[in-house]
């Protein structure tokens, strides 16, 4: 991944404002940003390690540990709550066998909170491995569970 950082900055620039695009690219490549890479990022963009660490830890997206093989991002915001989101959240945690905000011990699936996907008239909603799913009820939840079991 260190080579990835140097190659990316060579191609896209190494000014400070490239930090977020670089972190997004690393997320895309590896699924998470390893703390061990902070010195390489800091070197490439001529920033302090503390500065880079500060940015990575500020943003919810920049996870620092490996994600599950499948990721279910379930909306917890008001509009989904108004449509029974809390019950679906509890049912999803039970069916998938993982608590909200955790990766299941076998690494197969992670259940992550998300605060609004902008699909507020068709909730409860989720992003399943990046694919939007609306109007989640028991049947849809079962389909999601079978999908992420594969």
């Amino acid at each position: 991944m260190e080579d990835f950082v140097t190659e990316w900055t060579a191609r896209h620039g190494a000014t400070r404002d490239r930090l977020l695009p670089l972190l997004h690219a690393m997320l895309e490549e590896a699924g998470y940003i390893d703390d061990a890479l902070v010195p390489a990022i800091a070197r490439a963009l001529n920033l302090s390690r503390a500065d880079v660490h500060g940015v990575i830890t500020f943003y919810h997206d920049f996870r620092r540990t490996a994600p599950g093989r499948h990721v279910v991002k379930l909306c917890r915001a008001e509009s989904c709550q108004a449509r029974g989101g809390a019950a679906i959240e509890a049912a999803a945690a039970k069916r998938l066998g993982v608590a909200m905000g955790e990766v299941r011990a076998d690494g197969q699936v992670a259940l992550e909170p998300v605060y609004c996907l902008g699909l507020c008239a068709i909730g409860p909603n989720a992003l399943v491995d990046g694919r939007p799913v609306g109007r989640i009820d028991a049947a849809v939840l079962e389909r999601i569970a079978l999908e992420v079991a594969a």
Binding site: T15, R16, D17, R18, L19, L20, L23, H24, L45, V55, F58, Y59, H60, D61, F62, V114, Y115
Partner: peptide, 19 residues
Amino acid sequence: AGAYVCGEETALLDSIEGK
């Protein structure tokens, strides 16, 4: 990158600047 507060305009500007 998933920070709600970046909808506030000055936080958004800092975020574009890479902070």
